[in-house]
Each structure stands twice: as C-alpha cells, then as structure tokens.
Design a binder for these strands. Structure first.
Lengths: 368, 368
DNA sequence: TTGAAAGCGCTAACAG
DNA sequence: CTGTTAGCGCTTTCAA
C-alpha cells in the first residue's frame, strides 16, 4: 500500500447517474453522443459529468465492446532514427481519431515479434500495424489472423490477411545503381542487411535487375548480410573489402550501415568518395551531417506512418480492403558519391554528375 | 464487417474449465500459479489450456484487479535519438516483468502531456514514467496523483508524488565549462533549450556556478532559448551570433541543437573549433559522426530507462519510496573543441588539452 | 424518451 | 483442495 494519498476514487457512470438523477443508460448515451435523450436531460447529465470530472473507463468499455480504443504498433528498433519518424506519423493520425498507440520494439528478433503480437491480442487492441516483420509467412499469418485489422509496413501480403503500405524499394535500389553507374562506378558491393528483411530482398532485386539492364557485372559474392546498425556496417564492410578489395561502389542496407561502412573504409585508408562511392538508404536526419554527407534514398517515412494508420482505421471499419499503398522514394545526391574518381576500367566514365539534384519525384500510387 | 475470416473466437476461462471438467476458479488458480490446486488437477487443467491455446484476457482481469499489466511512458519526442535509448531501457525491464509499455510522444507540448496522462488513466495503466515533463507543478501534480505509481525522469519532485531518476545535469554543465575554460575559451554563449525544461535550468545553474568559481564573466545576455531540435539550433545560433559576435565557446542544450549551431556557424564563416568551440549534450550515437565530431556529455541513457522502470515497479508495490536515483554524466572530448585557438584575450590560455579522454567516471549514487 | 436486466471475462471472498 | 457467489464499469437488449 503506497504511503501516498490514495488516488481519488474513480468516478463511475453510477456516480454521474446518481447526481443527475437519471439511470446509467441515459448517462452512457450522453457520453457516447447517442440519440434518444431529451435535450434537457442531456444538459443535466453534461453538467453532472463536468462537475464530477467523469471520464469513461476504457477498460470496462472494452470488455463489453471487445475494443480498447488502442492500436498496436510494432517496430524493429526505435533506436534507428528511421522508425521514430514513422511512429510520429502513425501516432498523429491515431490520436486524432481517439486511439492510443501501444508501441513495441522487437529489436529485430522473431521471438519478440511473436510475443508482441500476442501481447497486443491480450490487450485487445483494435488493430495492429506491423513494421517490417521478420517472421516467416507461416508463423506470421496465424498470429495476424487473430487480429481484427492489420496493416503491414514495407511488406506485401495477401490483402485478406492485412493491408500493406510500402516504399517502392526496388525503385530506390535502381535509382542508386543508376546514379553510381553514371559516376563511373563498375564494381558494386552491397551490404544487404538482415537476411529476413523483406525490404532488403526487394532492394537486392532492384540491384540485380538494374545492373543487368545497364550491362554491369554484379556478383552475389560481393554481397554481405549485416545487422542494420552502425556496428553491423563496420563489421560487414571490413569483411567485404578484405575479400573483395576491387569494389568501387558500396551500397548499404540503410544509413546506419553506411555510417559504419564509411568508418571502416576510413580505417583501411580508402577514401570516400574518391576511391569508393558509398550510398545509404532512408535519409535519416543525420545523413547530411555525416562526413562526407551521405548520398541516400529519401523515403517519405512520416507519411508512410500516416498512411499506415489511416489504412488501419479504414480496415477496422471493414473498409479499404485490397488497397495497397506504394510510396515513391527519392534520390538524395551528396558528397559520399559525387567526388568519385573513375579509374581506367570504366568504359563510359562520366565523372560529372549533377550535385544535389533528385531524380524521382515523391508521390504515391494506388494499385488494385 | 471485415471480408476476412473472423478471427478465431476468443477462448475463455469457461472453455478451459469445461474441457478440464473443473470450475472457473480452479483454472484461474492454475493460470495465476496460485496454491490450492491438487497436482493432478493442475496437470489436467494445464493440458486443457495448451490444447485450447488459452490466453488470459488482460482487459477483463484489469477490470477486476484494477490493473492492466501495462505502464505508461511519456517522452517528449522519439525523434530525438536520446529518447529511444531510454525507451529501450525502460521497455526491456518492463517486458521482463510481464508489463507492456504504452508509449506516448508529447512533442514538447503541455497540452499533449495532459492528454497523455489522462489517456493513461483511462487505460488503467499500473504506473507512469514521465520523461522531462514540461508542465508546471500545479498542473502536473493533480494529474500524477490520480496514478498509483509515478516516476519522473530528469525532474526532482516531492517523493510523496513520484520517484525520480535523473542525470546530474549541473555536474554535466560544470564539466563542459571546465573543459572549455582549460582550452582557453573566455566568452561563453549558451543555447538553453525550451524555457520550461528542468534539465535546461539545472544546466544553467551549473554554468552559472562553474563560471563564477573559475572567475569567468558570464552574462545571461549571451543566452538564447531554443527548440531542442536541429532547426532550433540553427535559428538560435544565428540570432545569438548576430548579437554577440565575440563568443568563443558555445554550449548547446543538446546534440541536435549543437548540430544546428555548427551548421549556422559554418554558414557565417566561423570555424569550429578554431574560432568557436562548440559542445552539445547527451552524446547521441551520431555525435561522433558530425563534422567536426562533437564534444559532449554522455549520459547513461539506457540505464536511466532501466532504473526508471525498476523504480516504478518498486513503487507499484509500495516499496522504494523516497529514493531518488542520480546518475553521473561523463565528458566526451572530440574535435569540436580540441582545436580551439585562443586569441590574445585568454589569461591562462592552455591550448593543449588531452584528446579523447573523459574526466568524470560513470557511476551512480543514491540520495535520501 | 427512458430504464431494468443481463452479461463481457475474470478474480476476491467465502463456502463446502 | 475445490466450487459458488458476487461484482469490477460499461453496453446491449428489450421493456416501459
């Protein structure tokens, strides 16, 4: 028993009803703005509510209505600046509609993902936004099916199971490859991120296709998976350059990995961008403050969060099924690539690329 | 009505009881690991639970037990890398003890803080961790008193109302002043952050006292409040240097502000650290990647989160009252200060400071 | 337009 | 050791 004064007793519907001299139901109707109450009674009840400072107990309501006015948001790692941006977007929409966000960090771990989805269930959330889940479909689907509404971020899926909101990562990867190729880079390396990342696979697809189309030889031997963190970048880049010193263009899973990679390259005496052009992905706020400033792909992350929450609210009401929102990424050219000096090898070494220009405009597209 | 298959009906205690051929209470006892059930019956119930995949409904339990097995965590802005670190610490402890985190972002806004605290109440959280709240005591206390247990981060308070876990920000500020003074800086400027920030006030205290003790003249005219963001830093630094061009040491509310300030200084042609030494606060992961790498104060943020959650769990059980945890900060010396070139003015210009060394060791202290 | 009764899923407090 | 009863605060259903 706390030494503190006990918090003021909870005011219940009954208290308000007693004070207003009406029944529970009348109060309930007023609270929920439902018809069937005379305007005079309604007024009297309103006064009682104000006087007592009544607030509905969401838990009790949830028990009956099987709803808790909350939505679960699962993100891999709030510590990566990419996700907080998304959280803000989702939260702003959720709060606006009277919902509370239950946020869970799953630290890129499948077990934590399972736990989180279960916990959401226990708390009777009305819907779930799952951000880049790492679980396999077989494990993920049964978990998702237990929820009334689900939206997946950056992962395509059966629209029966969940809606999806994503960035066109294949395009993002293509933009980067194209840019590096224009600069005269010919030997591409790629730190691909966590092996189970959907986004990572899509980017790999983009790299594969775009290099093929441009006639660049691209070998998966110059590919290393890594943790999506600065440390992951340091390690993976070290390993890759040990094995494949000839790489002159290094693509990274995200900006954190790129930061680590640039650190590792510096330690090895490789200059960025003169010897090796490095690109990241996400355009976190700090990318432009790195040394050199990082060329990367800017994804409309805040909007991604908003769209996800909006779609979830729709699905919670049984609307918006089968809609798949795809947001377009944008290339941000900065100093980690523009000073690249092509060596003899380059067939069509251009060297002069436009600085600080973006190619693909933002925007969105709806499919299906 | 969703087109999806309806999620599997919820399995309740009654289902398990029926299957095991016992009463509700027996199942409840087994679920909660309570004594008073024969080992054979217990086994039978366990099997039924597994077979049916029963999970307790926390909402229903909460209604009776007035608890929802969740704790509310209110942070000003997840977008500032400082807070996610803290969130991780708190979350890890909470999850370990079977609690879920309800996270809310209050975007440095008093209204959102009020809303968040109320929402926590509506959801019957078992306790609240409030991170650097901006609300005044008169507004904050009544809100807090409605919660069973509260821990404030970075804000001292009446232990009857809430526990407190904080960094010794006065010491942090003193370490910075001392360091800058040793380098030969003599004219200090300070971007103080949001006016209502408790942490900001403590740091100001540290600056005031340390400068006085060192015999440096420090005027509040060289002080500007600012938003705790990169943009805030750009603006405030611009304004300050317009007015006070003689400043040779710029202290900033946090690392984001410092990033903005360095940007603004660069635009004005002032070199960092040669002309102006700049320091931040928090040591976010990216501070070492800035150009130049930022000298700053490293706060044990993850641990701060852990301690806050730990203390809250204690308080929720009526223990640990009156304990106030204070964590010690540490000086991280980097390139944004070490190359400072003192001009004639400095009386005891030293110039040679140890690189990459820290003065105050980490550690913690309990008072009261 | 209003109210009374029943019950959401669970647990505390007693019986047996 | 096990079961019964009552009720958490609210809403749905049906009756007045």
């Amino acid at each position: 028993m706390p030494a503190t004064d006990i918090a003021t007793e909870r005011i219940t519907l009954a208290d308000v009803a007693a004070r207003a001299g009406v029944s529970l139901m009348t109060v309930s109707r007023v609270v929920n703005d439902r018809p069937g109450v005379g305007s005079e009674t309604r007024e009297r009840v309103r006064e009682a509510i104000d006087a007592l400072g009544y607030r509905p107990n969401i838990v009790a309501r949830g028990l009956k209505a099987a709803s808790s006015r909350s939505i679960g948001l699962m993100v891999p790692d709030v510590t990566n600046p990419y996700f907080p941006e998304l959280v803000r977007g989702a939260e702003d929409v959720a709060i606006e509609h009277g919902y509370t966000l239950l946020l869970t960090n799953v630290i890129e771990d499948a077990n934590r993902e399972t736990l989180a989805l279960r916990t959401f269930e226990d708390h009777m959330v009305d819907g779930v936004i799952a951000c880049s889940p790492r679980l396999d479909n077989e494990d993920l689907y049964p978990l998702l099916k237990r929820h009334r509404a689900v939206v997946l971020v950056n992962r395509r899926t059966d629209p029966k199971i969940a809606g999806s909101v994503r960035i066109d990562h294949e395009l993002g990867a293509r933009l980067l490859v194209r840019h590096l190729h224009q600069l005269g880079c010919r030997t591409f390396g790629f730190l691909t991120g966590p092996p189970h990342s959907h986004a990572g696979r899509e980017r790999m697809l983009g790299v594969d296709r775009e290099t093929r189309e441009l006639g660049i030889e691209f070998s998966h031997a110059r590919t290393v998976p890594c943790a999506p963190t600065v440390e992951g970048g340091v390690e993976a880049a070290g390993e890759l350059f040990e094995r494949e010193p000839g790489i002159d263009a290094l693509m990274c899973f995200n900006d954190l990995v790129a930061a680590g990679a640039m650190q590792a390259l510096k330690e090895r005496g490789r200059r960025v961008p003169e010897d090796v052009a490095v690109v990241g992905y996400d355009d976190i706020v700090f990318a432009r403050m790195f040394t050199p400033a990082l060329t990367t792909i800017k994804a409309p992350t805040y909007e991604l969060g908003q769209q996800a929450a909006g779609m979830l609210l729709d699905r919670m009401q049984g609307r918006g099924h089968g809609i798949d929102i795809v947001l377009q990424p944008e290339l941000m050219v900065r100093d980690s690539t523009v000073g690249f000096q092509p060596t003899s090898g380059g067939k069509t070494a251009t060297g002069r690329a436009p600085r600080r220009s973006a190619t693909a405009a933002g925007g969105r597209r709806r499919s299906r």
